[in-house]
Design a protein around this nucleic acid. Structure first.
Lengths: 226, 226
DNA sequence: GTGTGATTTGACCAAATGGTCAAGATGCAA
DNA sequence: TTGCATCTTGACCATTTGGTCAAATCACAC
């Protein structure tokens, strides 16, 4: 199946989910995110997800008809959060402020939801079997729209002529790297984004590199940030 | 087991591998790289690896004692190639030239060995169960050494005071992103690094962003590159 | 050619795992 | 309390899969 939406128990009499359903589906999705991000789709087992969610495997399969449907529901659950920051890039704002805010928010997400980042990375690296259609439609439209915003800034002489798509890719790559490769980062530096100091130095370093790379002054003069 | 080296057939009378052994081990490693990078460790099956290598599963297990030993041999096989470019960063060279060459070589690797990049990313994202020791020792030593090189360039006033470790992470993140997320990139742009034009524009965009971000003039005046 | 060790394979096994099902437990409205 | 729908579970099944083993085949030194 390729549908990304979840699956309701057999006979949903009422449209709204019951209190118990709400709670259990939430527990399952949380446990599934941990398991899928740690082991990948194939390595994850429904039994472990069920145990982590505090219920039997059979009960989990009462809420989600198959392992794949849990996986799709988990993906759908994180995808919206994941794409929100780019949507807020404001054509009317200042390029440096807008891009800096975007980078800061993306690193925020990497710090707060590293498992979601890894799950997404895993899905895409395996060829995006489930979310390829979403990438080709929704994400593509969003990227084209925001690329135009950046192009307009460039044509207005407000920043250097960097390729907007590559700029977006670079922001994605760097910010998500700190979540996806946190084990490597911890092995090399002894810390990661969960440490506030490292978090702050990462935001400062990445923002400075990319904004200056795009011909934007950063940090601003008299800026309170590092 | 945590050893990264391969495994020889039962009774290796002579130290050197026979002609047949050489050929078959090579075929297996090539097939394993494809399978592991496409499906991850858990999703890969020895039967498919054997089929891809043109032999029976039993025969494959004659050359490698277990699935894990194939995986470790594959990892070890790509790790050396993967870390070579950083080793060549020359403290006596020009900062802009050295960093540009490093970026170019990393993107070259991403274009030529995207499967190796994905396998490495997969391993690290799962917590680096096999190569964590290597990261903590060899890679850490290499990163510390090259960070010092960059620090010296900074203290000599030859580039801006960017955090060397974050600079290295940024280069890794961006260059490997084009291999690891090639499906997403293809979904958004219609092409990827296998297209020479896109390859060239990627090198130009990433190099320009990062070098200018580090306070280095790029492209050089009168540079033949894009 | 012949014999010996290296190579190759099909048959087989045990464990893991996704999913089914019938029965029991629980919540809740009347 | 009672009745019914929701919720929960253990027993069970079929398939997949990593790995073993004995037997067959092959390469090659003599």
């Amino acid at each position: 199946m390729t549908c990304l939406s979840g699956q309701s128990p057999a006979s949903p009499k009422q449209v709204g989910l019951s209190r118990i359903q709400e709670k259990n589906r939430s527990l399952i999705l949380e446990a599934a995110l941990g398991e899928f991000s740690k082991k990948g789709f194939s390595g994850a087992t429904v039994e472990r997800i069920a145990a982590e969610a505090g219920m039997s495997k059979s009960n989990l399969l009462y809420y989600f008809s198959s392992k794949e449907s849990i996986y799709n529901a988990t993906l759908a659950h994180i995808l919206e959060i994941w794409l929100t920051p780019l949507k807020t890039l404001d054509p009317l704002g200042d390029p440096a402020d807008e891009l800096a805010a975007y980078i800061r928010q993306k690193i925020e997400l990497s710090a707060e939801f590293p498992e979601a980042s890894r799950l997404f990375a895993n899905e895409v690296m395996q060829g995006a079997p489930q979310i390829l259609p979403v990438l080709q439609t929704d994400l593509k439209r969003l990227v084209l729209e925001k690329s135009q915003v950046i192009k307009d800034w460039i044509e207005a002489g407000r920043m250097d002529a960097v390729d907007p798509v590559h700029l977006i890719f670079t922001i994605w790559a760097t910010t998500q790297h700190y979540a996806d490769f946190s084990v490597q980062i911890r092995a090399l530096t002894g810390t990661d984004l969960s440490d506030p100091d490292f978090h702050q130095s990462t935001v400062a370093a990445v923002t400075s590199l990319i904004l200056n790379g795009a011909g934007l002054k950063w940090p601003r003069e008299g800026d309170p940030g590092a």
